[in-house]
């Protein structure tokens, strides 16, 4: 059995010629178009200032586009969207369990009624048994896992991740990359992932959107055809190296144009 190719999957969200201007003059994002389909793992790759975080904020609905439109193909009920920031962004006064409870608590669910779902999600991210720990007792990687569990607990259709592993050491990042792919395969969710690491984007994504800065815009879209599941052997394969070279060259073009 082969997974459906990108073109056959049902559409989830379309970003149609979206632009964002700050303060009436600073063009953060220009004319971006992107179709997100269910099950996609899309990376937005680019140098700083290319508008990739702006694009993510627009997709999350936290800010409104100056021009163009973002359209959900499915009804957008609360909890359909999960977000992971660069920082773990946990509430320090709350335990791991209470932090993961947050999205459901805001919908009025009591802790006892969703404890099972919380435990299940914590198990998925490898934090079973840490329910009562406080964030300060956890390592950076573990905090990020809590943050991911919080985003996953509502079983969202779309997860937006804004350079979630940028502040972690390489060993932890590789481990989390592997686990993220396993989770995505298991839950079948759609991910849009912002990164400035070529290697990370190639390892994770089936599509890479290469962006350039000043003004922030999409330069080109690369398909990463390597089949899932990808694991450590993929990370050391010649195929991976070739794909990284290609993405690197595209990114280099982006930097060159901007400079």
């Amino acid at each position: 059995m082969t997974p459906p190719t990108t073109g056959q999957r049902p559409e989830l969200m379309s970003v149609n010629r979206v632009g964002k201007v700050f303060g009436g003059a600073t063009v953060a994002l220009q004319d971006m178009s992107l179709t997100v389909r269910q099950g996609d793992f899309i990376s937005l790759l680019g140098p700083s200032g290319c508008g990739k975080s702006t694009a993510l904020r627009l997709m999350s609905g936290l800010s409104l586009p100056t021009s163009g439109a973002i359209r959900w193909a499915v009804p957008q009920e609360p909890g359909a969207l999960g977000v992971v920031f660069q920082e773990p962004t946990l509430m320090p006064w709350a335990t791991v369990e209470q932090n993961v409870w947050l999205p459901m608590r805001l919908r009025g669910a009591s802790l006892s009624s969703v404890r099972g779902e919380i435990s299940e999600t914590l198990r998925l991210v490898g934090l079973d048994g840490f329910q009562r720990a406080y964030p300060r007792e956890l390592s950076g990687g573990m905090k990020m896992r809590v943050s991911i569990a919080r985003a996953l607990v509502t079983r969202p259709k779309l997860i937006l991740m804004d350079e979630p592993f940028a502040a972690l050491d390489e060993i932890t990042r590789f481990k989390l990359n592997n686990d993220l792919l396993t989770l995505q395969a298991e839950l079948g969710c759609t991910v849009v992932f912002v990164t400035h690491s070529v290697f990370e984007s190639v390892f994770l994504s089936d599509r890479i959107v290469v962006m350039a800065a000043r003004p922030g815009r999409v330069l080109r879209e690369l398909a990463v055809d390597a089949p899932y599941p990808r694991d450590e052997s993929f990370r050391t394969s010649a195929e991976y190296a070739a794909l990284c070279r290609e993405a690197s060259a595209a990114l280099h073009d982006a930097m060159g144009e901007a400079a």
Binding site: L81, E87, L106
Partner: peptide
């Protein structure tokens, strides 16, 4: 925390 505020907004 501003990111937490954003999160609260996203979750309505």
């Amino acid at each position: 925390d501003h990111n937490l505020r954003d999160l609260f907004r996203i979750y309505g």
